[in-house]
Simulated scan of single mutants.
Amino acid sequence: MNNNYQILGVAENATADEIRSAYRAKAKEHHPDLHGGDPAAGDRFKRINAAHDVLSDPTKRAQYDASLRAARMREAVEKLRVALARTPVTPAFRQPAPAPPTPPRTSTSAGDVLFGLGLLSLATWGVGALAKGRSRYDPSVDRYRGPDGRFRSG
Rank of each mutant, 00 (worst) to 15 (best):
E75Y: 00
T106I: 12
E29P: 00
D142G: 11
N4E: 12
R152H: 00
A22I: 13
A97Q: 07
K60P: 02
D65P: 00
F151G: 00
F115V: 09
P100T: 10
T15S: 13
T87S: 05
A76H: 00
A76F: 03
H30W: 14
K26Y: 05
G146E: 01
A97C: 03
I48K: 10
V54C: 05
V54W: 02
Y23D: 14
N4A: 13
R74D: 04
N4M: 04
N4Q: 14
D148K: 04
L55W: 02
G133H: 10
G9D: 15
G149M: 07
L122W: 03
T87M: 12
D33A: 10
Y5C: 08
A51Y: 14
G116M: 08
V127C: 04
P101V: 14
L8F: 13
L122Y: 07
D38R: 01
A41K: 07
R20T: 10
P100R: 14
V10F: 11
G111N: 15
R145D: 07
E18Q: 14
S121F: 03
P91I: 06
S121A: 05
E18R: 13
S135N: 01
A97M: 05
A62C: 00
L68H: 02
S109P: 04
L120D: 05
G111P: 01
E12V: 08
S121I: 05
N2D: 11
L122V: 04
S153D: 03
M73C: 01
S153F: 09
G111I: 13
R152W: 00
L122G: 00
T102S: 11
V54Q: 11
R44W: 03
E12L: 12
T124H: 02
D142Y: 09
A83R: 12
K28S: 13
G133R: 11
L122P: 00
A70D: 11
V77Y: 02
T15Y: 06
T59V: 06
A41V: 06
T106K: 15
V54Y: 05
P101S: 14
P101W: 10
A11Q: 14
A51D: 15
V10T: 08
S21M: 13
A110M: 11
A51S: 14
L122Q: 06
A92F: 14
A16P: 08
P58S: 03
E75H: 01
D65Y: 04
P58R: 01
S107M: 15
Y144T: 03
K46C: 13
Q95E: 11
P147I: 02
A25S: 12
P88Y: 12
T15R: 05
P96V: 03
A123G: 04
P96I: 03
Y64E: 03
G154F: 13
R94E: 08
K28F: 04
Y23M: 15
L119Q: 06
K132M: 14
R150N: 04
N3H: 04
A14R: 09
P39H: 10
V113D: 07
A40N: 12
K132P: 00
P39N: 10
H31Q: 07
D148I: 03
R47E: 13
F45Q: 11
A16T: 15
S56E: 06
A129I: 07
D57V: 11
G126V: 14
A131I: 06
N4D: 15
F93C: 10
R81K: 05
A41P: 03
D112L: 07
K79M: 06
D38Y: 01
K132N: 14
I48E: 10
P91E: 07
V77S: 02
V113F: 15
R152M: 03
G37R: 08
A110T: 14
